[in-house]
C-alpha cells in the first residue's frame, strides 16, 4: 500500500521544471500526478510516475537533488464530503498530515496522495475504516 513518490529540489529559476519533465519524457516515463510546493527561495516538485526507480536514476544522473518518499494514495468517491470523512478519521486518530494533493482520472473516483506523519498507522486506520487504498501497480499505470 506504500507508494513511491519522486521528490525533486528546484531552485527558483526559469526553465528548471522543463528540464525535469524533458528528462522524464525522453526516458518514456509517464507522470500520473504532480504537485509543487513553492517557497520564496526554492520549490519542491513531488511526482507519481510510471517507473519511480528508473526516474530516480535518470534525474540523479542529470544532476538533480532527488529522492524517493513514501506516501499513500487514497481513492475516495468523487462526491461532496468524502475527503472530509477520511480526514476526520485520520485526525480523530491523531495522524498528522505533512502534505497532500489530489487528482481525478475521469472515473467516478478521486485519488488523494497523502504524506502522513506515521505511514503505517495511517494505512492501518484507513483500511480498518474500509477506505480504498491504491496499490503501487494500480497507480503507476493510471
Amino acid at each position: 500500500m506504500i507508494i513511491k513518490q519522486l521528490s525533486v529540489f528546484l531552485e527558483n529559476k526559469t526553465g528548471r521544471l522543463n528540464e525535469v519533465t524533458d528528462c522524464l519524457g525522453a526516458a518514456d516515463i509517464n507522470l500520473t500526478a504532480l504537485s509543487i510546493a513553492d517557497t520564496s527561495e526554492f520549490g519542491i516538485l513531488r511526482m507519481i510516475v510510471s517507473d519511480p526507480d528508473k526516474a530516480l536514476k535518470i534525474l540523479k544522473n542529470a544532476g538533480f537533488a532527488v529522492s524517493l518518499t513514501e506516501v499513500v494514495c487514497l481513492q475516495s468517491p468523487n462526491t461532496p464530503g468524502s475527503l472530509a470523512k477520511a480526514l476526520d478519521i485520520l485526525s480523530g486518530e491523531g495522524v498528522f498530515i505533512e502534505y497532500l494533493y489530489a487528482f481525478s482520472n475521469g472515473n467516478n473516483a478521486a485519488n488523494v496522495v497523502l504524506k502522513p506523519g506515521n505511514i503505517q498507522k495511517c494505512i492501518t486506520i484507513l483500511q480498518k475504516n474500509k477506505m480504498k487504498l491504491l496499490k503501487e501497480d494500480d497507480l503507476y499505470q493510471l
Binding site: 513518490q5 521528490s7 529540489f9 510546493a37 517557497t39 527561495e41 526554492f42 519542491i44 513531488r46 540523479k60 537533488a65 532527488v66 529522492s67 518518499t69 505533512e98 502534505y99 504524506k115
Partner: peptide
C-alpha cells in the same frame, strides 16, 4: 549547495536547514 542525501520532500525540513 544542499547535499543530495539531505534533500527532503518536506518544506519545513529544508527551511530548518536554512
Amino acid at each position: 549547495e544542499v547535499q543530495q542525501q539531505f534533500f527532503s520532500d518536506e518544506v519545513k525540513n529544508l527551511q530548518n536547514l536554512r
